[in-house]
Nucleic acid binder design. Structure first.
Lengths: 215, 215
DNA sequence: ATTACTAATTCACGAGTAA
DNA sequence: TTTACTCGTGAATTAGTAA
C-alpha cells in the first residue's frame, strides 16, 4: 500500500530531487499531528522508501517503483475494458527517432500529450491476436499532431494515443505514412524507456492504452 | 487516500460487475482479521465507495473516480522527471573553475540554484547519441545568471539547468561564450563531486536533468 | 460456510518536551 | 525554528461468538 505521505512527496517532486519538507508540513497535509508525521517519516526511512540528504527528503527508486507498480495495476484494471497490447521489443531503424524529433512535432507533443518525447522511439511488435485490437484503436478519435513542410521535405500529420508501459506514460504514434506494418507499434515517451525500464530487444512488453474519455 | 481494499476490489474487477467477495478473503489479502475486514467494508459502504447487490460487491462510480484522480496525479508526477545524459568524466582546464568562482556568480548561484558551488567544475563528455538531447535542453527556459564587468574583463551571462548525478543536486552551466563544443557539459555542485562520488577521469556518469516546471 | 456483534487488548496517536 | 523522544489515553484491532 502506498501511503498518503508518499503521494504528497510525489506531488512535491521529491522523487526528482531532495526537497526541504518539514514534519509539520506533512502533518498538516495528511491531517495528523506533527509527532505522527515524524514517526511515519521515520518508518518510511527504515523501510527504505525515503532518504535524507542534508536535511532534505527524496523518494528512493524503490518507492517510485512501488508507485509505478500500483499505477500500472490501477490502469490495467480501469482500462481493462479498454485495451492493451502484448508484444516484443524490436530494434528500431532510428529513422522514426529523427523524424519525430523535429521541433514542430515535439512542441505539439508537449502541448497535447504533456511531454516532450525522448529522441528515440520504442518499436513493439505485437502478437497476431492483438492486430484486431490495433484496428479498433485506430477507429477511435486520435490526438492529432499536425504535419508541416521543411524545405522540400514534407512531414505528414501524426495520430497519437496515450498509453502506459509499466505505469510510465507514453503514446502510440501512427505517422500518416508509416513504413511499419500492422504488427508494429511505435511508441514515444518523455523517457528513454529502454533505460528506464531496463528493456532490451526481444523483451516482452505490455502496452496499456489509456482511456482519455474519463472524467 | 485509497484503501487497500479498494485496490483489491479493483484487481478483482469489482468496478465492472458485482463480485462475490467474502470478508475472510479480503482479510487474508490485506493482512488483517476477518472482523476488521468486515468493519472496513461496512465503512466503505457507509462512505458510498461500495455497494452490495444481492450479496455481491461493486465499487461505486465515486470510488472509481477517486482512483482515476489518484492515478492521474501519480502519472502527472512521474511524467515530471526528465532527460538524462550519459557521458564520461574528463579532465577540466581549471579555467571554468576560476571563471565560475567569481563572487558575483556564486551569489546568484546560491540564490537561484540553492547552493554556493564548489570551486571546481565537472566536465562530462557526453556520448554522441545524447548531443541531440543537449540541443533540446537548450531550447528549454534556463535559470539565467547575469553577467558583469570587472575592470576591463567582461564576465558573460550563464544559462543553468538543474540536474542530479547519483542523486546529488547539481547544475549544468552554459556560459554565454563557452570554449566547449557540443559534446561537453560543464557541471557545478555544492560538493567536490569527484570526492563525494569517488569519480575519476574516464569514469562513466549519468546526468539527470531535473524538471524545473514544478512548484 | 459467512457476517457482524460485543468485549478484551493492543498499539497508534497526540501532548508535552528536550535537544 | 524543527525533530523526535516518552508516556498516558483511546481508537482501532482481534477474539469470542451468535445469528
Amino acid at each position: 500500500m502506498i501511503s498518503d505521505i508518499t503521494f504528497y512527496l510525489l506531488e512535491k517532486g521529491a522523487h526528482i530531487e531532495p526537497k526541504r519538507i518539514t514534519t509539520g508540513e506533512v502533518a498538516k497535509q495528511i491531517g495528523v499531528s506533527q509527532q505522527t508525521a515524524s514517526r511515519k517519516l521515520l518508518e518510511l526511512e527504515n523501510q527504505g522508501d525515503i532518504e535524507k540528504v542534508s536535511g532534505k527528503l527524496i523518494l528512493t527508486e524503490k518507492a517510485i517503483s512501488k508507485v509505478r507498480a500500483c499505477v500500472a495495476m490501477a490502469l490495467d484494471a480501469l482500462e481493462g475494458s479498454g485495451m492493451s497490447f502484448t508484444g516484443t521489443l524490436v530494434q528500431g531503424l532510428g529513422e522514426g527517432a529523427y523524424y519525430l524529433s523535429q521541433g514542430q512535432y515535439t512542441r505539439e507533443f508537449k502541448k497535447k500529450l504533456g511531454f516532450k518525447p525522448f529522441a528515440g522511439t520504442l518499436n513493439v511488435s505485437i502478437v497476431p491476436e492483438d492486430i484486431e485490437k490495433r484496428i479498433t484503436l485506430r477507429q477511435q478519435k486520435p490526438i492529432a499532431i499536425k504535419g508541416f513542410k521543411k524545405g522540400k521535405r514534407t512531414f505528414g500529420s501524426i495520430s497519437a494515443y496515450k498509453c502506459a508501459i509499466s505505469g510510465v506514460p507514453c503514446a502510440i504514434v501512427f505517422p500518416e505514412r508509416s513504413s511499419h506494418g500492422l504488427h508494429m507499434l511505435e511508441i514515444i515517451s518523455k523517457f528513454n524507456l529502454r533505460k528506464k525500464l531496463s528493456l532490451s530487444d526481444g523483451k516482452k512488453v505490455l502496452v496499456e492504452v489509456v482511456n482519455t474519455s474519463g472524467p
